[in-house]
Simulated scan of single mutants.
Amino acid sequence: MNTQKILSIFMIFAVLTGTMLALGCTEADNENDFVETEHDEETTIPLDEITNIEWQWSGLIETLPASHSVVPDPENYTITFSENGTYSIKADCNRGSGSYTLEDNKMTIAPGPITLAYCGPESLDSQYLSLLGNVTAVSMEDGKLVLETGENGDRMLFIKGEIVEQ
Protein backbone atom coordinates (compact mmCIF):
# COMPACT_ATOMS: atom_id res chain seq x y z
CA MET A 1 0.00 0.00 0.00
CA ASN A 2 1.43 3.36 -0.85
CA THR A 3 1.66 6.28 1.55
CA GLN A 4 -1.14 8.26 -0.14
CA LYS A 5 -3.62 5.40 0.32
CA ILE A 6 -2.63 4.98 3.97
CA LEU A 7 -3.04 8.71 4.59
CA SER A 8 -6.44 8.68 2.85
CA ILE A 9 -7.64 5.78 4.98
CA PHE A 10 -6.39 7.56 8.08
CA MET A 11 -8.18 10.78 7.08
CA ILE A 12 -11.48 8.98 6.47
CA PHE A 13 -11.17 7.22 9.81
CA ALA A 14 -10.33 10.53 11.52
CA VAL A 15 -13.35 12.26 9.96
CA LEU A 16 -15.67 9.41 10.99
CA THR A 17 -14.24 9.33 14.52
CA GLY A 18 -14.55 13.12 14.86
CA THR A 19 -18.10 12.99 13.59
CA MET A 20 -19.06 10.32 16.12
CA LEU A 21 -17.45 12.30 18.95
CA ALA A 22 -19.23 15.47 17.85
CA LEU A 23 -22.56 13.66 17.72
CA GLY A 24 -22.14 12.61 21.32
CA CYS A 25 -21.07 16.07 22.48
CA THR A 26 -23.29 18.52 20.64
CA GLU A 27 -26.56 19.89 21.83
CA ALA A 28 -28.60 22.80 20.56
CA ASP A 29 -28.46 25.64 23.09
CA ASN A 30 -31.43 27.45 21.68
CA GLU A 31 -34.11 26.29 19.28
CA ASN A 32 -34.04 29.75 17.68
CA ASP A 33 -30.51 29.02 16.41
CA PHE A 34 -32.06 26.89 13.65
CA VAL A 35 -33.01 28.45 10.35
CA GLU A 36 -36.79 28.65 10.21
CA THR A 37 -38.20 27.35 6.95
CA GLU A 38 -41.37 25.55 6.02
CA HIS A 39 -39.61 22.17 6.00
CA ASP A 40 -38.96 22.48 9.76
CA GLU A 41 -42.57 21.55 10.49
CA GLU A 42 -42.68 18.23 12.27
CA THR A 43 -44.25 15.82 9.83
CA THR A 44 -44.27 12.07 10.17
CA ILE A 45 -42.44 10.49 7.24
CA PRO A 46 -44.00 7.13 6.32
CA LEU A 47 -41.35 4.44 5.91
CA ASP A 48 -42.80 3.32 2.58
CA GLU A 49 -41.96 6.75 1.10
CA ILE A 50 -38.23 6.33 1.67
CA THR A 51 -37.48 2.59 1.88
CA ASN A 52 -36.44 0.25 -0.91
CA ILE A 53 -35.35 3.16 -3.11
CA GLU A 54 -31.76 3.88 -4.09
CA TRP A 55 -31.54 7.60 -3.27
CA GLN A 56 -28.84 9.51 -5.17
CA TRP A 57 -27.18 12.53 -3.53
CA SER A 58 -27.76 15.39 -5.97
CA GLY A 59 -26.97 18.54 -3.98
CA LEU A 60 -26.15 20.28 -0.74
CA ILE A 61 -27.71 23.47 0.59
CA GLU A 62 -25.61 25.10 3.29
CA THR A 63 -26.81 27.98 5.44
CA LEU A 64 -23.56 29.38 6.88
CA PRO A 65 -22.26 30.65 4.53
CA ALA A 66 -25.27 30.36 2.27
CA SER A 67 -24.48 28.17 -0.72
CA HIS A 68 -25.96 25.53 -2.96
CA SER A 69 -23.68 22.96 -4.54
CA VAL A 70 -24.52 20.28 -7.07
CA VAL A 71 -23.05 16.79 -6.82
CA PRO A 72 -21.47 16.03 -10.22
CA ASP A 73 -22.16 12.26 -10.23
CA PRO A 74 -25.19 11.53 -8.00
CA GLU A 75 -25.17 7.83 -8.92
CA ASN A 76 -21.81 7.52 -7.10
CA TYR A 77 -23.28 8.63 -3.75
CA THR A 78 -26.33 6.61 -2.80
CA ILE A 79 -28.23 5.44 0.25
CA THR A 80 -30.94 2.81 0.42
CA PHE A 81 -33.05 2.50 3.56
CA SER A 82 -34.60 -0.87 4.41
CA GLU A 83 -37.78 -1.34 6.42
CA ASN A 84 -35.86 -3.22 9.14
CA GLY A 85 -33.90 -0.12 10.23
CA THR A 86 -30.76 -0.76 8.21
CA TYR A 87 -29.28 1.07 5.24
CA SER A 88 -26.65 0.48 2.59
CA ILE A 89 -24.55 3.19 0.99
CA LYS A 90 -22.27 3.81 -1.91
CA ALA A 91 -19.72 6.56 -1.31
CA ASP A 92 -17.98 6.75 -4.68
CA CYS A 93 -15.67 3.70 -4.75
CA ASN A 94 -16.60 2.61 -1.21
CA ARG A 95 -19.55 0.56 0.03
CA GLY A 96 -20.99 0.27 3.51
CA SER A 97 -24.02 -0.32 5.69
CA GLY A 98 -25.37 0.49 9.11
CA SER A 99 -28.54 1.25 10.99
CA TYR A 100 -30.86 4.22 11.22
CA THR A 101 -33.71 5.35 13.43
CA LEU A 102 -36.73 7.31 12.29
CA GLU A 103 -39.31 8.80 14.62
CA ASP A 104 -41.79 11.25 13.08
CA ASN A 105 -39.36 13.32 10.99
CA LYS A 106 -36.32 12.91 13.26
CA MET A 107 -33.63 10.64 11.87
CA THR A 108 -30.24 9.43 13.00
CA ILE A 109 -27.88 7.41 10.84
CA ALA A 110 -25.40 5.26 12.75
CA PRO A 111 -22.17 4.40 10.96
CA GLY A 112 -21.40 0.80 10.24
CA PRO A 113 -18.72 -1.12 8.40
CA ILE A 114 -17.46 0.53 5.22
CA THR A 115 -14.64 -0.07 2.80
CA LEU A 116 -11.89 2.52 3.00
CA ALA A 117 -10.46 2.67 -0.52
CA TYR A 118 -8.92 5.88 -1.81
CA CYS A 119 -11.32 7.17 -4.50
CA GLY A 120 -9.15 9.97 -5.86
CA PRO A 121 -8.73 13.68 -5.21
CA GLU A 122 -12.02 14.68 -6.87
CA SER A 123 -14.11 12.31 -4.76
CA LEU A 124 -16.75 13.62 -2.34
CA ASP A 125 -16.74 10.38 -0.32
CA SER A 126 -15.34 11.91 2.90
CA GLN A 127 -17.79 14.83 2.80
CA TYR A 128 -20.69 12.50 2.04
CA LEU A 129 -19.88 10.17 4.94
CA SER A 130 -19.37 13.09 7.32
CA LEU A 131 -22.71 14.65 6.38
CA LEU A 132 -24.57 11.34 6.80
CA GLY A 133 -23.11 11.01 10.28
CA ASN A 134 -24.72 14.34 11.22
CA VAL A 135 -28.26 13.75 9.93
CA THR A 136 -30.95 15.02 12.33
CA ALA A 137 -34.18 15.08 10.31
CA VAL A 138 -35.78 13.90 7.10
CA SER A 139 -38.46 15.33 4.82
CA MET A 140 -39.84 14.98 1.32
CA GLU A 141 -40.00 17.97 -1.03
CA ASP A 142 -41.22 17.71 -4.62
CA GLY A 143 -40.40 13.99 -4.75
CA LYS A 144 -36.89 14.54 -3.38
CA LEU A 145 -35.57 13.13 -0.12
CA VAL A 146 -34.10 15.86 2.10
CA LEU A 147 -31.77 14.97 4.97
CA GLU A 148 -31.08 17.82 7.36
CA THR A 149 -27.63 17.82 8.93
CA GLY A 150 -26.06 19.54 11.91
CA GLU A 151 -27.39 22.46 13.88
CA ASN A 152 -27.38 25.01 11.04
CA GLY A 153 -30.13 23.39 9.01
CA ASP A 154 -27.89 22.34 6.13
CA ARG A 155 -29.75 20.04 3.74
CA MET A 156 -28.64 17.12 1.60
CA LEU A 157 -30.88 16.64 -1.45
CA PHE A 158 -31.48 13.20 -2.96
CA ILE A 159 -33.23 12.17 -6.15
CA LYS A 160 -34.88 8.81 -6.73
CA GLY A 161 -32.77 6.16 -8.38
CA GLU A 162 -33.72 2.53 -8.80
CA ILE A 163 -36.37 0.70 -6.81
CA VAL A 164 -34.60 -1.97 -4.76
CA GLU A 165 -36.25 -5.36 -4.30
CA GLN A 166 -35.91 -6.76 -0.77
Rank of each mutant, 00 (worst) to 15 (best):
Q166I: 05
E36I: 08
E62K: 15
E165C: 02
I89W: 09
M107Y: 02
Q166N: 11
I45N: 07
L102Q: 05
E141Q: 13
P74D: 08
L145E: 11
T115M: 05
N32C: 04
S69Y: 08
D29I: 08
E151P: 02
A117M: 15
A14G: 08
I79E: 05
S99E: 11
T43W: 02
D73C: 04
V135G: 07
E31L: 14
E151Q: 13
W57T: 06
E49M: 06
T63F: 02
S69R: 15
L102I: 10
E62M: 10
E36L: 13
W55L: 06
T26S: 15
C119E: 03
D125R: 08
T44Q: 14
V164D: 08
F34W: 13
M156E: 01
I12F: 07
L16M: 15
E148T: 06
P72F: 04
G18I: 01
K144R: 14
C119S: 06
S130L: 05
E42S: 13
Y87M: 10
N105A: 04
S58W: 03
V35A: 10
V35C: 04
Y118N: 15
T80C: 08
I159L: 02
E148I: 01
G161F: 07
T149Q: 02
T78C: 06
E75A: 14
T19G: 04
I45E: 04
L147M: 08
T3H: 04
A28P: 00
L132W: 05
N84H: 10
V146K: 10
P72E: 14
E54T: 13
G24H: 07
P65E: 04
N76S: 15
T78P: 02
I159T: 13
D48V: 12
M140W: 03
A117E: 07
H39F: 03
Y118R: 14
G120C: 00
G59A: 13
T37V: 13
K90S: 11
N94M: 10
V164L: 12
C93Y: 06
V15I: 14
L7A: 13
G18R: 08
F13G: 09
Y128H: 11
E151N: 05
G161A: 09
F158V: 02
E151S: 13
T115A: 06
E165D: 14
M1R: 09
E27T: 06
G133Y: 08
N152P: 00
